[in-house]
Write a protein that binds this DNA or RNA. Sequence first.
DNA 1: ATGAAAGCGCTAACAA
DNA 2: TTGTTAGCGCTTTCAT
Lengths: 345, 345
Amino acid sequence: MAVTIQDVAKAASVSVATVSRVVNNIPLVSEDTKQRVLAAIDELGYEPNEVARSLKVRKTKTIGILLDDITKPQYTSISRGVTDACWIYEYNVILANTDGDIEKEKKYLKVFMQKQCDGVLVVNRKISDELATQLASLKVPVVLGAVSDREKKFANVSIDNRKASFEAVEYLHEKGHNDIGYIMGNREEFTVCADREAGFWQAVEKYGLNAKEEWCIESEKKKLTEQDVKEGYDAMQKILDSKRLPTAVFAANDEIAFGAMTCIEERGLKVPHDISIIGFNDYWLSEWVKPQITTISHPMYDVGAVCARLLIKKIEDESTSIDAEDSIVIPHDIIIRQTVRDLND
Amino acid sequence: MAVTIQDVAKAASVSVATVSRVVNNIPLVSEDTKQRVLAAIDELGYEPNEVARSLKVRKTKTIGILLDDITKPQYTSISRGVTDACWIYEYNVILANTDGDIEKEKKYLKVFMQKQCDGVLVVNRKISDELATQLASLKVPVVLGAVSDREKKFANVSIDNRKASFEAVEYLHEKGHNDIGYIMGNREEFTVCADREAGFWQAVEKYGLNAKEEWCIESEKKKLTEQDVKEGYDAMQKILDSKRLPTAVFAANDEIAFGAMTCIEERGLKVPHDISIIGFNDYWLSEWVKPQITTISHPMYDVGAVCARLLIKKIEDESTSIDAEDSIVIPHDIIIRQTVRDLND
DNA sequence: ATGAAAGCGCTAACAA
DNA sequence: TTGTTAGCGCTTTCAT
């Protein structure tokens, strides 16, 4: 049987109220009794029972995080950012992998509520309408990480994917590329892909680029578990089968870019001599493969940390405004390495 | 104000005890009242307050997991295995990244206890004596994942690292390699490295191999955040600077192997023609780089899942035996690919 | 400055 | 089969 506040009170010959005061650093306790209580706490090895405290104060100092799959590098970094920020504010995080399965999402959300989480973070490939409905019905703050809902009802923190990919294509254009393609994840399933695709087409239009249909491959894949590298490899096969080739291809992420490059080399072509590649996310691998991949940075750790901070702020401010006005945009960068050839030379 | 069991009782015109019975599926409730209660629950949207329940039953159905850094691929997979297993048994996991910092470890352990976690999982590069002391003083079950403590006091689940690396070297020997080296993580800081090194020397001794001192590089690095690839690259530089070269090098993990291979190629040598490489862990990358890396599989997902299962078993069995008798060994395999040359041909 | 006491939402004897 | 009631360990008025 663990030692309780009662035991401490008895040992220090004070009331439980007094012990509670010293534990919570509430003034109004004479230095003398405070020391007596502290001594008793120390001697008995008393640890406050957070469960009892939570029940009383109706706050658990824990947040739930709904995550597609922590195994995907992007999500891993985000989760690290989240836990680090929570560590600072003394919150705990309950982790839930859902694989984008709405049933799991609902179940976990229910658990979060039963466990009286103070808020929930969602880091998903996309926010389905059904999930949005669920989230809207919660009585605690919600923040989305690296994703946004269709209706923009929830606060989210993310980079500007549309703008970033616009800039990537603009960069390609500056380097003299006018025949370009892309390899994208499934637009319906991955919100970031829809955004990145939009930016792509926006740049194509603005600069009058030539993006033939057979150079633009959108993945069918729905599941997150399939290997992105393989996907990039397969997509590039298709692109290389077309009669004319693009001079550059924009990949939705670096793993896809890597797979695409592998395919290109296997077919006896050279990157960037024959085809230029630009990736996305700046995965550590990109610096180590040959040639090093030119890409867009995506500071996921920051996304996670800012996410958590925003959520905690909402929790503690009791500001019930669960709308996108609080959304935060994290800056990105273009990382120039070796996979884009300058055609102007 | 959330709806409580009281509200439901009132709405269904029964006592709270009855409501509690139907919520917890305790028989002895007439079908008739049961339906009335269920209807009331449904209508009011009642969700049981787990915090109150936990306080009463002295079980929280949550476990704490102390993790070095979830960002490292090995640990990521383990954590996924853990959460998946917990999902099945309806446990929740509170995640703590400690970076191997004893202060953080102590702090988090304290939090785990205050939150009344039912058990704790430790997935660290090593169990320091101080951490072992802390763990031993807990009144809840402890299980170690992919690591063991010096005194083997705690149950752990892991592959047999010593045996696996013995087999790796044995394989090298079978292929005609007698001049071999290794690139290892710091033995003091990483328990697996100490084990893998032991297996290495055991094989060297058994087969009378030649493992020159300058071919055996042990990393100085203490921090987990430094890039393994870079480490492998730098270590290989040193090896290639020696007067005579080994015919094969055993790398402590695939990232190190990859870095080493990069270095070898940059110096104008070929893998496996000039130097063979064998890695460890079977990281996804190994199948995609050229040449594909021969390696030892390390099913971390399984380690995590089994870990969690064992911990939950201990929790629910109330079996207070916190000793290594419960330890579980996960099987490994050697994955033959393209980086080991057969010198017998 | 300190204590008494009510109660957070739930479970589990015990009674009826 | 159902209800009454006493806590679980803590915080927080309200008295003193």
